[in-house]
Amino acid sequence: MESAYLADMVIPPPARMPAITKFVKPYILKMHFTNNFVSAQVIHTPSATVACAASSQEKVLRPSMESTRDVAAAAKIGKLLGERLLFNGIPAVSVSMSRDQKYHGKVKAVIDSLRAAGVKLL
Rank of each mutant, 00 (worst) to 15 (best):
I20A: 10
T45L: 10
A19T: 11
A109L: 08
G105V: 05
D112E: 15
L86Q: 13
P12S: 13
A54R: 01
I20Q: 06
A54M: 08
L6T: 00
P14I: 09
S64T: 11
R115F: 08
S39E: 12
R16F: 04
E58H: 07
A7V: 00
T45F: 02
D112I: 09
A51G: 13
D70Y: 01
K76Y: 10
A74K: 01
P91L: 05
L61C: 02
M9D: 11
E83M: 07
P26V: 08
M65C: 08
G118I: 09
F33P: 03
S96H: 12
S47D: 15
A15Q: 15
C52A: 15
G78E: 01
K108N: 14
K102G: 14
S55H: 02
V110A: 03
Q57M: 13
T45Y: 05
K76C: 09
C52D: 01
S47V: 03
M17G: 01
T68F: 03
S94V: 00
V110R: 00
H44G: 03
L86H: 13
S47G: 08
R84K: 15
A19P: 10
I28K: 13
N36C: 04
P18G: 10
V42G: 06
F87I: 03
F23D: 10
D70P: 01
A92G: 11
Y5C: 02
V10R: 13
M9C: 13
S113V: 03
V110K: 00
L81I: 00
T49E: 15
V93F: 12
M97F: 12
A73H: 00
A51Y: 08
K30R: 08
I11M: 14
P46K: 05
M97K: 15
S94R: 07
L29D: 11
R69M: 13
S47H: 07
D8Q: 02
A92C: 15
S96P: 03
H44M: 01
G78I: 06
K30Q: 07
T21D: 10
L29T: 09
A109M: 07
E66R: 04
F87D: 13
F87M: 05
I20S: 06
